[in-house]
Protein backbone atom coordinates (compact mmCIF):
# COMPACT_ATOMS: atom_id res chain seq x y z
CA UNK A 1 0.00 0.00 0.00
CA UNK A 2 1.38 3.34 -1.01
CA UNK A 3 0.84 6.41 1.07
CA UNK A 4 0.96 10.18 0.93
CA UNK A 5 2.40 12.21 3.77
CA UNK A 6 1.88 15.91 3.97
CA UNK A 7 4.96 17.38 5.60
CA UNK A 8 4.25 21.04 5.59
CA UNK A 9 1.54 23.40 4.52
CA UNK A 10 2.50 27.01 3.97
CA UNK A 11 0.40 29.87 2.78
CA UNK A 12 1.25 29.31 -0.84
CA UNK A 13 2.78 25.85 -1.01
CA UNK A 14 2.38 22.36 0.32
CA UNK A 15 5.19 19.90 0.80
CA UNK A 16 4.34 16.26 0.42
CA UNK A 17 6.11 12.98 0.07
CA UNK A 18 4.71 9.76 -1.22
CA UNK A 19 5.64 6.16 -1.72
CA UNK A 20 4.15 4.40 -4.72
CA UNK A 21 4.73 0.83 -3.56
CA UNK A 22 3.89 -0.50 -6.98
CA UNK A 23 3.74 -4.23 -7.48
CA UNK A 24 4.70 -5.19 -10.98
CA UNK A 25 1.79 -6.38 -13.04
CA UNK A 26 2.60 -9.47 -15.09
CA UNK A 27 1.16 -8.08 -18.30
CA UNK A 28 3.07 -4.85 -17.80
CA UNK A 29 6.31 -6.78 -17.26
CA UNK A 30 5.62 -8.89 -20.32
CA UNK A 31 5.12 -5.82 -22.47
CA UNK A 32 8.28 -4.13 -21.20
CA UNK A 33 10.30 -7.32 -21.67
CA UNK A 34 9.15 -7.41 -25.28
CA UNK A 35 10.90 -4.09 -25.76
CA UNK A 36 7.73 -2.02 -26.03
CA UNK A 37 8.19 1.51 -24.71
CA UNK A 38 5.60 2.64 -22.22
CA UNK A 39 4.70 6.21 -21.35
CA UNK A 40 3.59 6.64 -17.77
CA UNK A 41 1.74 9.69 -16.59
CA UNK A 42 2.18 10.89 -13.04
CA UNK A 43 -0.72 13.18 -12.25
CA UNK A 44 -0.94 15.06 -9.01
CA UNK A 45 -4.16 16.88 -8.48
CA UNK A 46 -6.27 18.42 -5.79
CA UNK A 47 -9.98 18.19 -6.33
CA UNK A 48 -13.07 19.39 -4.61
CA UNK A 49 -15.56 16.54 -4.51
CA UNK A 50 -19.08 17.35 -5.59
CA UNK A 51 -22.08 15.08 -5.09
CA UNK A 52 -24.21 16.09 -8.04
CA UNK A 53 -21.66 17.25 -10.59
CA UNK A 54 -18.16 16.57 -11.80
CA UNK A 55 -15.49 17.14 -9.21
CA UNK A 56 -13.84 20.53 -9.39
CA UNK A 57 -10.14 20.43 -10.14
CA UNK A 58 -8.29 22.95 -8.03
CA UNK A 59 -4.71 21.98 -8.77
CA UNK A 60 -3.15 19.73 -11.36
CA UNK A 61 0.38 18.78 -12.22
CA UNK A 62 1.38 16.23 -14.82
CA UNK A 63 4.73 14.54 -15.37
CA UNK A 64 5.37 12.12 -18.17
CA UNK A 65 7.77 9.26 -17.61
CA UNK A 66 8.93 6.73 -20.10
CA UNK A 67 10.01 3.21 -19.40
CA UNK A 68 11.85 1.38 -22.12
CA UNK A 69 13.92 -1.72 -22.57
CA UNK A 70 16.65 -2.16 -25.12
CA UNK A 71 17.05 -5.87 -25.80
CA UNK A 72 20.09 -5.00 -27.88
CA UNK A 73 22.01 -3.95 -24.80
CA UNK A 74 19.76 -5.60 -22.17
CA UNK A 75 19.12 -2.36 -20.36
CA UNK A 76 16.06 -0.67 -18.91
CA UNK A 77 15.67 3.07 -19.02
CA UNK A 78 13.50 5.45 -17.10
CA UNK A 79 13.07 8.94 -18.50
CA UNK A 80 11.84 11.23 -15.78
CA UNK A 81 11.88 15.04 -15.65
CA UNK A 82 14.60 15.27 -18.28
CA UNK A 83 16.74 12.64 -16.60
CA UNK A 84 17.52 9.30 -18.10
CA UNK A 85 18.36 6.48 -15.80
CA UNK A 86 19.45 3.05 -16.88
CA UNK A 87 18.88 -0.17 -15.01
CA UNK A 88 20.17 -3.64 -15.52
CA UNK A 89 16.90 -5.19 -14.49
CA UNK A 90 13.25 -4.19 -14.36
CA UNK A 91 13.21 -4.84 -10.64
CA UNK A 92 15.84 -2.17 -10.13
CA UNK A 93 13.69 0.22 -12.11
CA UNK A 94 10.60 -0.59 -10.04
CA UNK A 95 12.55 -0.19 -6.82
CA UNK A 96 13.60 3.21 -8.03
CA UNK A 97 10.06 4.12 -8.88
CA UNK A 98 8.88 3.00 -5.45
CA UNK A 99 11.40 5.20 -3.67
CA UNK A 100 9.93 7.92 -1.50
CA UNK A 101 9.37 11.04 -3.55
CA UNK A 102 9.14 14.54 -2.25
CA UNK A 103 7.09 17.17 -3.95
CA UNK A 104 6.28 20.77 -3.48
CA UNK A 105 2.92 21.91 -4.77
CA UNK A 106 2.42 25.59 -5.27
CA UNK A 107 -1.07 26.26 -4.12
CA UNK A 108 -2.74 28.69 -1.72
CA UNK A 109 -3.45 27.27 1.67
CA UNK A 110 -7.07 28.36 1.55
CA UNK A 111 -7.62 26.24 -1.56
CA UNK A 112 -6.65 22.96 0.01
CA UNK A 113 -9.02 22.72 2.93
CA UNK A 114 -11.44 19.81 2.82
CA UNK A 115 -10.23 18.80 -0.59
CA UNK A 116 -8.75 15.60 -1.88
CA UNK A 117 -5.19 15.12 -3.01
CA UNK A 118 -4.82 12.43 -5.65
CA UNK A 119 -1.58 11.04 -7.03
CA UNK A 120 -2.23 8.88 -10.03
CA UNK A 121 0.29 6.82 -11.98
CA UNK A 122 -1.19 5.47 -15.15
CA UNK A 123 -0.33 4.49 -18.66
CA UNK A 124 -2.10 6.55 -21.28
CA UNK A 125 -3.62 4.19 -23.77
CA UNK A 126 -3.16 6.66 -26.58
CA UNK A 127 0.61 6.50 -26.11
CA UNK A 128 0.72 2.73 -26.53
CA UNK A 129 1.55 1.22 -29.90
CA UNK A 130 -1.56 1.08 -32.07
CA UNK A 131 -1.84 -2.68 -31.91
CA UNK A 132 -1.98 -2.48 -28.11
CA UNK A 133 -4.58 0.24 -28.20
CA UNK A 134 -7.10 -1.91 -30.06
CA UNK A 135 -8.64 -3.71 -27.17
CA UNK A 136 -12.25 -4.47 -26.50
CA UNK A 137 -11.88 -3.22 -22.97
CA UNK A 138 -9.39 -1.09 -21.13
CA UNK A 139 -6.61 -3.33 -19.71
CA UNK A 140 -6.34 -3.21 -15.91
CA UNK A 141 -2.55 -2.84 -15.98
CA UNK A 142 -2.92 0.65 -17.39
CA UNK A 143 -3.37 2.06 -13.90
CA UNK A 144 -0.19 1.59 -11.92
CA UNK A 145 -1.32 3.18 -8.71
CA UNK A 146 -3.74 5.76 -7.36
CA UNK A 147 -3.06 7.35 -3.99
CA UNK A 148 -5.48 9.66 -2.24
CA UNK A 149 -5.19 11.92 0.78
CA UNK A 150 -7.89 14.04 2.35
CA UNK A 151 -6.55 17.46 3.05
Amino acid sequence: MGEIIVNNIDDNKIEIEYELNYQMHKEFEKIIEKGISIKVLEEIKIIKERDYFFDKEIYSQKNYKKIEYHPLINKYYLHDRGERKSYLSLNELIIDINKKKQLQLKINKKDINNNLLIIDWRIEQNSLPKSLQLNLKKPDWLVLKTLTYSL
Binding site: I31, K34, G35, I36, S131, L132, L134, N135
Partner: peptide, 11 residues
Protein backbone atom coordinates in the same frame (compact mmCIF):
# COMPACT_ATOMS: atom_id res chain seq x y z
CA UNK B 1 11.19 -3.58 -35.75
CA UNK B 2 11.54 -6.28 -33.13
CA UNK B 3 9.65 -4.02 -30.72
CA UNK B 4 6.84 -3.46 -33.24
CA UNK B 5 6.74 -7.15 -33.98
CA UNK B 6 6.53 -8.00 -30.31
CA UNK B 7 3.74 -5.46 -29.88
CA UNK B 8 1.88 -7.07 -32.74
CA UNK B 9 2.54 -10.54 -31.36
CA UNK B 10 1.26 -9.44 -28.01
CA UNK B 11 -1.99 -8.16 -29.47
Amino acid sequence: VFEDYQALTYS
